[in-house]
């Protein structure tokens, strides 16, 4: 069971990949999906590994990510 969970508000994501670089578990990636603005949005590929450290949310310039932890 994962310790943490992340949620992306994809409409606001600009695909800058700073969260991908900041994640210590390397479970984030830039997907092939685009949002209404045409940016390829970030996503979590393996939520079970998420430790809820909020590194991604700390680096996100657009406050896209909501982090939950037990």
């Amino acid at each position: 069971m994962a310790k943490g969970k992340v949620e992306f508000r994809e409409a606001y994501c600009k695909g800058c990949s700073l969260c991908v670089n900041a994640c210590p578990m390397k479970i984030l990636q830039i997907s092939k999906r685009t949002n209404a603005k045409g940016y390829e949005v970030a996503e979590c590929v393996d939520m079970d590994k998420c430790i809820g450290c909020a590194s991604c949310a700390t680096m996100c310039p657009d406050s896209v990510i909501t982090v939950y932890r037990d």
Binding site: G4, K5, R9, G52, A54, A57, T58, S63, I65, T66, V67, Y68, R69, D70
Partner: peptide, 9 residues
Amino acid sequence: MKIIADKPK
């Protein structure tokens, strides 16, 4: 689960 990081109000 509680929220630990979110967009500030």
